[in-house]
Write a protein that binds this DNA or RNA. Structure first.
Lengths: 362, 362
DNA sequence: TTGTACGCGTTATCAT
DNA sequence: ATGATAACGCGTACAA
């Protein structure tokens, strides 16, 4: 196994020499180009195998138009939301001979610029920008370079002066909020309140609007939206506010649509502490479908899934399309991908049990 | 801004032409080599700036010995434990002109081989292998290639026949278990039980051994280790087993060292439900220091932190050392990095409040 | 002080 | 059917 060869990896020249043919012939044999005698092809192949030859992609890329590499720039560190997105991107791009550079800009414009420069110097065929929030960010500064860019789980303010808009793939938070609320209304709940995160998040605004739209479409009771932190503590506090001793008994909500699973869990625990049953007295729906919370909450939590891995996959596919199509071909701008309601036991709906994907570990 | 230049990026030839010098002179000017007249250097620099010139790293690497790239292969998908490790690696490697290829082997040997081939074809200078469990795995098959490899949060069975052992960076789970247990004993607890995960995990074995070592060192009461799943549900069940109505009142544990924060949370909730106070009646310590759980548990959870980001950083640094040192220089084998006990309120110790790092989001 | 020419590893074009 | 050669973009020894 351990050849006495030098550390240098074998080149196609070595292969040609080993097979007793010229360099050009070896190249053709390995790439199936031109007209070669079958025996020659076989001989070259054998030599290549014997030497464990791998074509040097650096050299290949040097005179091809593409490098078969792409870059992912994560705005913030590898967070809980970037993760599935990146996984999806890698899933699509990592196959098909394409390698993925991963960069962490850590919310620092200087670091971002550094990484962009590095990626361009490496002649990546495209770049995906990822964030931990869906809110708008400044566009990537590519200088004069013409490299397709796709934004995933983040977006750029659409500048009408720009000739070509970069695609921004985002979860349809409006639809998610609408779907969750409508689900509760369909189950017969009439007074649905919404407990969510900080209002400065665009996602919070959109989910709230979806919630309102569903309510008014059903002609349901007066809406009620509470904003707070993305924490269980806020969920507990909000539930206490709504159902605490000072509340009027007859106007109490019979359902709560929460802006995150963490909030939903806090809410659920506070309801239990107040002697209220979930879902009999109050139905609860969360957001994010984070298994660690949906499964640990009692009863298990119905939640909106943003399909982030799929979003990542679509971002990757979109980038591939853009790369193949050449510059200026992509119809860009924001694109909202549908969310999916995962029904469990906290909403009181009949639930068809299926094996939950086992993603736990230590 | 939008030049009428072709999509092709400017080469050093273009720069030379623009500056009115020869190709070689331009190269020297940009790299500070040779003896150039200051004015010439300045002229070339200006031309390069004007054209937004970036040297093509593919071409550079072609006749340098290195590519200034490294690969990370994650055994399983981007999980909760790979994440901070990868972040640390990227932190060290992503600076200093080095770009990082990210590969997801998804627990599939075929995919792993594919990615290794791709990385070698791209002439990476080194590879870091990451896992979601610290248990041993087969070594990466590099064929005849001589590329340094570092394992982080995973390890290879050390083969005595192998000339050079690859370094494996792992958390010191024995020390972590010992530290947590000793902490509880120091606080005056005498009957410490250990509620952990599945015994097939090496980490579970090591933590349990650390626990036992601390107990026997202190001459404490008979050890008690319970194994179950990595879930809150198991934590609740274990607490019920220990403290349920059928238990003898005088031999009950006064402290519980849990194998994960999720288990610890389940334990804590079950204790509350049984009317036991934490930490007054029973002290609780978790493992992983996962903020989402440590902060949401009431009282906040004292927990063992494996310092995974630091582990990742050290893995990256180690790889750089190996790359610089040339082949066969690294003293390899497993290397255990210390864990750190983060004291909060569930163990009953006085805790010095400091601003917790805000890593929450939606 | 500056320009020329070669090599890095590969593919593609043109002769043979 | 095969071999020689240019080209990709860059750095550098060497010549001028």
């Amino acid at each position: 196994m351990n050849q006495n060869r030098p550390a240098r990896l074998p080149t196609i020249k070595d292969v040609a020499h080993e097979a007793g043919v010229s360099l050009g012939t070896a190249s053709k044999a390995l790439n199936g180009q031109g007209q070669l005698r079958p025996g020659t092809v076989e001989r070259v192949r054998a030599a290549a195998d014997r030497l464990h030859f791998r074509p040097n992609r650096l050299a290949q890329s040097l005179h091809r138009a593409n490098s078969l590499t792409v870059g992912i720039i994560s705005t913030d560190s590898f967070g809980r939301f970037s993760m599935p997105v990146m996984e999806g991107i890698e899933d699509v791009l990592g196959s098909a001979e394409r390698s993925v550079f991963m960069c962490n800009a850590a919310d620092d414009p200087a670091r971002e610029k550094m990484h962009v420069d590095a990626l361009l110097a490496r002649r990546v065929d495209g770049i995906v920008v990822t964030g931990r929030r869906t809110d708008a960010r400044p566009a990537l500064n590519l200088g004069a370079a013409r490299v397709p860019v796709v934004y995933a789980y983040t977006q750029v303010g659409h500048d009408p002066g720009q000739t070509v808009q970069a695609p921004c793939l985002l979860p349809d938070d409006f639809g998610g909020g609408e779907q969750a609320t409508r689900h509760l209304l369909t189950l017969g709940r009439r007074r649905v309140a919404h407990i969510s995160g900080p209002p400065k998040f665009e996602a919070v605004q959109l989910r709230a609007r979806g919630y309102l739209a569903a309510l008014s479409a059903a002609g349901a009771a007066a809406p009620l939206v509470l904003h707070g932190a993305w924490s269980e503590a806020w969920g507990r506090e909000a539930a206490a506010q709504l159902f605490g001793p000072a509340s009027a008994t007859d106007a109490l909500p019979d359902a709560l649509f929460c802006g995150s699973d963490q909030i939903a869990r806090g809410v659920t625990e506070a309801l239990h502490a107040l002697g209220l049953r979930v879902p009999q007295d109050v139905a609860v729906v969360g957001y994010d479908n984070w298994d660690v919370f949906t499964e640990a909450t009692r009863p298990t939590l119905t939640s909106v899934d943003m399909n982030l891995r799929d979003l990542g996959r679509q971002a990757g596919q979109r980038l591939l399309d853009l790369i193949d199509a050449g510059p200026g071909q992509g119809l860009g701008g924001p694109l909202r991908l549908p969310c999916r309601l995962v029904v469990r036991h906290s909403c009181g709906a009949p639930v068809n049990e299926e094996a939950p994907d086992p993603r736990s570990s230590a």
